[in-house]
């Protein structure tokens, strides 16, 4: 592959919410990048800040109470944080678009799906309503909806969840975005439909050549779709790298815990002793533990872990880890094995 080009480079993003109880640091210094044409998965438990990260990129954080408190997000070299609302409106739905977890409620119930897809086309591509409706029909065909000419006149309530998610994808892709943000797009769907939607996204990515930021807490999905992974914990990236190294040789104890808590097909049953959930709960974002936020739940934790927030360091080949003991732990693991 030619030298990869960065499409989006998020550096030290901080998104805070000012609530009555105090400032919630939902995202606190997250950095990652997405190359052109690649798929980056963001994984982490509920509340780790995945959705807030994606909404920050779209600059759709409700303000107040939310605000982007720091960092930069370079999209094609231009900082999205510095864009005006007007400039952002030209980017949303056009250069960066988004699909969401809730296909049942993400479409407006009183407009036809065709109208809703055409709306973005008219807005960004300056087409007439008629041309846009024709393109909307073509988009429905592209995302594999049967009888698109008829379906384009349907209202959302006349479609199943899987179909509606296809409509969302059609809408998101209608203007040929460079980046598609998918926030748990398959979580609300049943397993067969999930597989179909993932298949569709992969196929369309190849055709359109866009990058995908794929948010999920389902590691099975990550293995299937992503090139690289960012693991998030309590508003920070704790491990980042190519999918294969992270799945086979995770270096951060939290990632190990995540991987141990799901059944794995790639590991023979003998190797994987038993499934174990990570003990404890995700910390309350208002009262994050001192130092490494994971230390109360980490079986490798030592006194020093509480002293300072560990840096995200390169453990070799761009495999980033936020853990002061990753080196020792790796050796320890090797001895055990």
């Amino acid at each position: 592959m030619a030298k990869s080009e960065k499409l989006l480079d998020v550096r030290g993003l901080k998104t805070y919410f000012d609530t009555d109880e105090g400032t919630v640091k939902a995202v606190d210094g997250v950095s990652f990048h997405i190359d052109k044409g690649e798929t980056l998965a963001v994984v982490g438990e509920s509340g780790s800040g995945k959705s807030v990260t994606s909404l920050s990129i779209m600059r759709l954080i409700p303000t107040p109470p939310g605000r982007i408190a720091g960092g930069e997000m370079l999209f094609n070299g231009q900082d999205l944080v510095k864009k005006s609302e007007r400039e952002m409106r030209q980017i949303r739905g056009n250069d960066i678009s988004m699909i969401f977890q809730e296909p049942m409620t993400s479409l407006n119930p009183v407009y036809t799906v065709g109208d809703q897809i055409a709306e973005a086309i008219v807005l960004h591509q300056g087409k007439t309503q008629k041309q846009a409706m024709k393109m909307a029909t073509e988009m429905l065909e592209l995302v594999g909806i049967p009888e698109p000419a008829k379906r384009v006149k349907n209202y959302p309530h006349q479609m199943s969840g899987g179909m509606r998610q296809r409509v969302m994808i059609a809408m998101a892709l209608s203007c040929g975005p460079q980046l598609l943000i998918a926030d748990e797009p398959t979580t609300a769907l049943d397993v067969t439909i999930q597989a179909q939607i993932l298949e569709l996204m992969k196929k369309l990515q190849n055709e359109i050549g866009m990058s995908i930021l794929f948010i999920t807490h389902d590691l099975g999905v990550v293995a299937e779709i992503a090139d690289r992974v960012v693991v998030m914990y309590a508003g920070r990236a704790v491990e980042e790298g190519d999918v294969v190294p992270i799945f086979t040789k995770p270096k951060m104890p939290y990632t190990m815990g995540l991987l141990n808590s799901v059944p794995r097909v790639d590991k023979a049953a003998v190797h994987q002793e038993r499934l174990e959930a990570i003990p404890g709960n995700v910390p309350n974002p208002l009262y994050l533990p001192e130092g490494c936020a994971f230390h109360p739940r980490c079986k490798f934790a030592i006194e020093q872990c509480k002293a300072a927030i560990p840096d995200l360091v390169d453990s070799g080949n761009g495999h980033m880890v936020r853990c002061i003991r990753w080196d020792e732990i790796q050796k320890e693991q090797a001895v055990v094995a």
């Binding site: 779209m58 949303r92 056009n94 969401f100 709306e119």
Partner: peptide
């Protein structure tokens, strides 16, 4: 659906 509308620009 309002979030969707915003994400369209």
């Amino acid at each position: 659906y309002i979030r969707t509308a915003r994400s369209k620009g």
